[in-house]
């Protein structure tokens, strides 16, 4: 248990620092790379929680596809590869206050409700369980998501293509 907690702590620290980098760095490409760190950390957290399949999907879809897509976006919008001055809003105090306030509210609520809730041990779910569930109980939402993806695909092509 201790090892897991230590592992969690290290990972959480890295993730928070990387997340802060994502929103603070002046280099767009660096931001995308820091995002990879955060996403990888999230995948690690999934593994820690025993959700193998979600962890692997996270790596495949997010790091493999979404980040690449974002980098394409960076490239196509002709961002400079070095530092860029014009990335942030002039007023950043208000966002910080709002975020901090929200964090305060959430922290209070979470600690107040789940102070001593232990997670059950040995609750690893494998891909078979997940697929059984998806293709039996959640088949309709699954189909809906596939239609949604198709719609998004077509929509993206229609929106982005040149006349």
């Amino acid at each position: 248990m201790v090892a897991q907690n230590v592992f969690f702590g290290i990972m959480a620290l890295i993730m928070i620092c990387a997340a802060l980098k994502v929103v603070r760095t002046k280099n767009v490409v660096h931001a995308a790379l820091w995002l990879v760190v955060v996403l990888g950390g999230v995948a690690g957290q999934f593994l820690l929680l025993g959700a193998e399949f979600v962890g692997v999907t996270q790596v495949l879809v997010y790091i493999g596809a979404v980040v690449v897509l974002l980098l394409f976006g960076v490239m196509l919008t002709k961002a400079s590869l070095g530092e860029e001055a014009d990335l942030n809003m002039p007023n950043r105090t208000l966002p910080a206050i709002i975020a901090a306030l929200m964090f305060g509210v959430m922290t209070y609520a979470l600690i107040d409700t789940f102070r001593d809730t232990e997670l059950p041990r040995e609750s690893v779910t494998n891909a078979a369980t997940v697929s059984d569930s998806i293709f039996a109980d959640y088949i309709v939402p699954f189909e809906a998501v596939s239609v949604l993806l198709l719609a998004a695909l077509i929509g993206a092509v229609v929106v982005a293509r040149k006349e």
Binding site: L94, P95, I98, L101, M102, V105, M106, Y108, A109, D112
Partner: peptide
């Protein structure tokens, strides 16, 4: 910003 702030305040009030 207004949306997030309002959400926060409402959540706070709820708590």
């Amino acid at each position: 910003a207004i949306m997030f702030a309002a959400t926060t305040i409402l959540a706070g009030l709820l708590i």
